[in-house]
């Protein structure tokens, strides 16, 4: 029953539309999540996800059977979001205001909900601040669980570069997310916090680098 992505894609290339349905169900959310975290805009992420799969269908013949389907579709997604970014270069990224209300969980108290959404906003902003070269591999690794090798294939980079980009990106993120990572210290002893508690986290790596 569970055929590999490559087998399904091959069938789809031969004209079997049900194979595409399976593939679509497997990947649509993953692709959407990747694009959403990359551009932080829901409606556009949805549109781009459609575009990715439309491109997959339209240019199905372009897929070479020996390559991995997973990296192929992420690559399409990456290219689509790139051209989208180029197209809307002049547009200012706006935060999705709806998001905060959207994932309201009943199990959390109102205070906790606010806290959660604040953390989310922090992460979102931190990732947005991050250089795209660091951000994209981190998103794929942290959220989608792709291997370094797969990421290297998607971005057409050596594995070593991917490794160092993920590490540096994370260090950068750590710096950006200090208030989230050490909320207690941050709140209690604000002036001292940077030198004492986060000393290792922020200063040490930058010295070592």
């Amino acid at each position: 029953m569970s055929r590999s992505d490559e087998e399904l894609m091959r069938e789809f290339q031969e004209g079997n539309d049900t194979a595409f349905i399976t593939l679509y169900e497997r990947y649509r959310l993953a692709i959407y999540r990747f694009i959403y975290r990359k551009i932080a805009h829901q409606a556009r992420a949805e549109e781009l996800t459609q575009e990715v799969f439309l491109a997959l269908v339209r240019y199905r013949k372009d897929w070479r059977q020996e390559s991995s389907f997973k990296t192929y579709i992420y690559r399409i997604a990456f290219n689509c979001s790139l051209s989208e970014a180029r197209r809307s270069e002049h547009k200012v990224m706006v935060d999705d205001e709806d998001e905060q209300n959207s994932v309201a969980s009943d199990t959390l108290s109102p205070i906790e909900q606010v806290e959660q959404s604040e953390i989310k906003q922090h992460i979102k902003r931190a990732l947005a601040k991050l250089d795209a070269d660091f951000r994209d591999p981190i998103i794929l690794r942290e959220y989608e669980g792709l291997s370094y090798e797969e990421i290297a294939t998607i971005f057409d980079l050596p594995i070593g570069t991917v490794k160092s980009r993920i590490f540096r990106g994370k260090l950068e993120l750590k710096k950006l997310l200090t208030p989230v990572l050490n909320p207690d210290i941050n709140d209690l002893v604000k002036p001292a916090s940077t030198s004492t508690a986060t000393g290792v986290g922020t200063n040490a790596p930058s010295q070592m680098l």
Binding site: E25, I119, Y143, L177, V180
Partner: peptide
Amino acid sequence: VMQKWDVPEPSLPTAQQV
């Protein structure tokens, strides 16, 4: 901590629509 950023549920077309 990063995992706390979850994505909102998307409204994507069905495979047939695509």
